[in-house]
Amino acid sequence: MDRKEITLQSRLRCPSCGFEKEEQMPTNACQYFYSCNSCGEQLKPLKGDCCVFCSYGSVPCPPIQENGGGGNCCSA
């Protein structure tokens, strides 16, 4: 039984100005808010996403990675 390796780094991209920054994802909670380091825009998840990493990141959050991309990690 192979266990999928979980990626803990994700590159967040601001939808307002396009600025990108690599960030460490938390493993014990969803990150609901994130402030862009360039323009100051306060990012929050898009409808249907559990966190800013799932909406704006290059890699979804660790719980979603573990579940194969399905479900909402904060709904439990």
Score class of each variant (00 low, 15 high):
D2W: 00
R3M: 04
R3G: 03
E5M: 13
E5G: 08
E5L: 12
I6G: 05
I6C: 05
T7K: 15
T7W: 05
Q9E: 15
Q9M: 15
S10P: 08
S10W: 03
R11G: 09
R11H: 02
R11L: 14
L12M: 05
R13L: 05
R13K: 12
R13F: 00
G18C: 05
F19G: 10
E20V: 12
E22V: 15
E23C: 13
M25R: 06
P26K: 09
N28Q: 15
N28R: 15
C30F: 10
Q31C: 06
Q31K: 09
Y32A: 05
F33W: 06
F33H: 10
Y34P: 00
S35Y: 09
C36V: 11
C36A: 10
N37G: 15
S38Y: 12
S38C: 14
C39P: 07
E41W: 01
Q42M: 13
L43P: 05
P45W: 06
P45Q: 13
L46Y: 09
L46C: 13
K47T: 15
G48V: 10
D49T: 10
D49E: 13
C50D: 10
C50S: 09
V52H: 01
F53Y: 14
F53M: 11
F53Q: 06
F53G: 07
C54F: 01
C54V: 05
S55E: 02
Y56N: 04
G57W: 03
G57D: 04
G57M: 03
S58R: 01
S58I: 04
V59P: 00
V59N: 03
P60N: 04
P60Q: 06
C61K: 02
C61S: 03
P62E: 01
I64A: 02
I64L: 09
I64V: 14
Q65T: 04
Q65L: 08
Q65K: 04
N67G: 13
N67S: 11
G69R: 08
G70R: 14
G70Q: 15
N72P: 05
C73G: 11
C74Y: 02
C74R: 05
S75R: 12
S75N: 11
A76R: 12
